[in-house]
Design a protein around this nucleic acid. Sequence first.
RNA 1: GCCCGGGUGGCGGAAUGGUAGACGCUACGGACUUAAAAUCCGUUUUCCGCAAGGAAGUGUCGGUUCGAGCCCGGCCCCGGGCACCA
Length: 861
Amino acid sequence: MVTKSKDYDFQEIEPRWQSFWERENPYKSGTDLTRPKYYVLDMFPYPSGAGLHIGHPEGYTATDIISRYKRAKGFDVLHPMGWDAFGLPAEQHAVKTGTHPAANTQNNIANFKRQIKALGFSYDWDREIDTTDPKYFRWTQWIFLQLFKRGLAYVDERPVWWCPEMRTVLANEEVVDGKSEVGGFPVERRSLRQWVLRITAYADRLLSGLEGVDWPDSTKRMQAAWIGRSEGAEITFGLEQPGLGGLKVFTTRPDTLFGCTYMVLAPEHALVEALTTPEQRSAVDLYRKQAASKSDLERTDLAKDKSGVFTGSYALNPINGARVPVWVADYVLTGYGTGAIMAVPAHDERDYAFAKRYDLPIVAVIEPAADVTGKPAPALPYTGDGSLVHSGQYDGLSWQEAKRRMTDDLASKGVARHSVNYKLRDWLFSRQRYWGEPIPIVWVCEADYRAAVAANPADFPKDPVSFEEAGVVRFAVPVPDSVLPLELPSVQSYLPSGTGESALANVTDWVDIWYDFSSGRSVPASSPKPDASTWVRARRETNTMPQWAGSCWYYLRYTDPRNAQAFASPAALSRWGGPDLYVGGAEHAVLHLLYARFWHKVLFDIGAVPTDEPFRKLFHQGIILGEDGEKMSKSRGNVVSPDTIIASHGADSLRLFLMFLGPLEAMKPWNPKGIEGVHRFLQKVWHDCVGEDGNAHARIVDGHQDSGATLKLLHETIRKVGDDIEGMRFNTAISQMMILENALHKEAQVSRSTTLAFVQILAPFAPHLAEEIWSRLGAPGLASAAPWPAFDAARVSSAEVRIVFQVNGKHRADQLVPLGITQEVALGLAQAHEKVAPFLAGKRVVKVVFVPNRILNLVVA
RNA sequence: GCCCGGGUGGCGGAAUGGUAGACGCUACGGACUUAAAAUCCGUUUUCCGCAAGGAAGUGUCGGUUCGAGCCCGGCCCCGGGCACCA
């Protein structure tokens, strides 16, 4: 063993305990099934080349404290860590250097792991996972196939965000202000064939499921807003041209039908062509061309400047037969509702602005409830509450009532139905990248598709997934489970082809194949066709999955990370379920958390997981800003590296300080001086426990009778630290331990039992120091293995209490009094009190407010 | 524009409607030291006062209450999210 230094030599102590933990693995989970389980999860990181950022250990320290606390409380704790390792930087590095992205990724993982271990976190490293490991992404692909089977994955030629710099498409939500969210590169619209997941089929459940989870309200609201459910009606307007059928619109305000003075179609609407009259043809064509060339940035950012053009045609309002002009305008979006609206300028701000610009009539049909004073008609557009006017038989009804009745009336004539719309769009799931999970699909011709379906009907969706290319229709055939994982082939260059396909498209022998749909085996198309009827000519899918895929289900894999038969066994899933606590940044409030919930619900529907929601309780740690109060960034030069702090003050000080900075959820600036404060605290604890010879300090006395005040403070601290850990208020837990230390420090002698209890509650925060002191004091086993100290309520109650005397609500004096004195006694004491009496002199007490054991307030006149 | 969250000493932050500023940082004073660092002991919201003590005070204006940092309404500022979704 090492020499016992009398000093707090964290540089010696911390690595020593870390190698002890490495050797002994005391944090292995699932070792005692008689204990209740607790699963606490961090959002796993992308292992970037830059290494750990100070924000990482913030959340990780919080979950580590909870893990250690829960273990001490008798729980079997699952606390794992892994790597969300597919990602663009590794691919860009590969493009530049020509080395396989996996090599770079593994280096980065090794570095991340070293840094994380240097913080002394109690992860069960036996459960480490890596999304780029074929043993892992085999199941990512398997889940994709489950989605495919259920008709939840399809391909579509659709206008998507194309980033020329990255040579890939991006999902809507990965594009911010016309630039890629990652990298900030410009993006443009392109129409490309894409895989899309039908998340909209789960919109309602994704919304209702939010009610039952313990998440920050702001996050729930954000998801709800993202899903954007709105209830209304789909109404069919008549058209004068024969043979066109009707014009369907979605509206949330069918009650304003009488106020509809024109219609608007999105420029891409299918009926624009047919509705455009010869006189308007050139104007409409020009407008559509302009709209198509506008970037979405222009379309949205110039929201104030509405533009449009008249088609020359009219529609007929089903409620009153009114003839209303049909316009084309790009303020109506093609992807929402029916891509057409009925415009009610009097009661909609957008329609109002448009009507003003083009001099269209404005008819008010809603008025606020008539007030006796007879207010003037409200300014238009009026979107508030009210009842109907100028609406024939519906006049006088409240708008809510009218909405219902008018929809019902029109529905009975077959020209309307109650309808619900969502802002949520289907999830663009393909990327033109090399470094991602290959999509386990091959494309074949129709005849071969039929043969494949006949052979394995259960593997296919009801409706075939197909697309047309150069006059040929290709059909999607899933690669069978048995040949998963479908691994990435090696390539000459990692650069995407640039035509909308990934680098995989250039690997001819991998892409163009003879494929056996009965077994999933394949040989390059350049070789002779194997001699069996189940071998068909096929082309592999060259798109890969987005980075979100691997993180959609990783929390399930941790429960059974080495299982080769299933993504996790039913036993493991029923033991651990989902995380009891999930901690990560608020930047994932919508995307990751929504996608993961979607996959989870699909897995629930196929009976693969026991719960409907993955994350019961969610917590977002706040961002740590630089010393200057700005976001940490290389360019600002305000980045703080965990490695530096560990070298100068130790991991325990860093852990403690990260938690002491302020509330975990708050955004807070780093203060380089503050680390000294918590470091001094640990020094103080050390020197009060460890003597000159490196063993227990002489002031620690076995069997010493601590004062009542000391025991009271100890038990208050045990209670507060426990409560604060449970409530994730780590900053106040640390304050309380500082108060206790300051008090113990003043004592000439402290009992060994008090000292050990203190060391134990400190252990989740500063595990290295705690274990070291624990062993120096000769305590048995590990501090972290001892049961959490029991809180003794009898110790904190005392016979006396400090009561406050107020006069007219102002604090005038306080006094130590026996617990439970009556109002009369308190009143007597107050009146006799030298500091209170002057304020009562010559006054009459008109009211007495008495809060037992707390306060006596005398109201005087 | 809409929806959230937040404004407390020089700084980070504490405060079930009941002593505002716990705890820490900084600064200042003292002890120890030849000296410094470290450590230890104090002081540290502002104003008046030698002091005892008093007054004011949680962005701002008002309200509820015996009592408001906390509850209610208006306004100002900061941060986050959404943004033509009919």
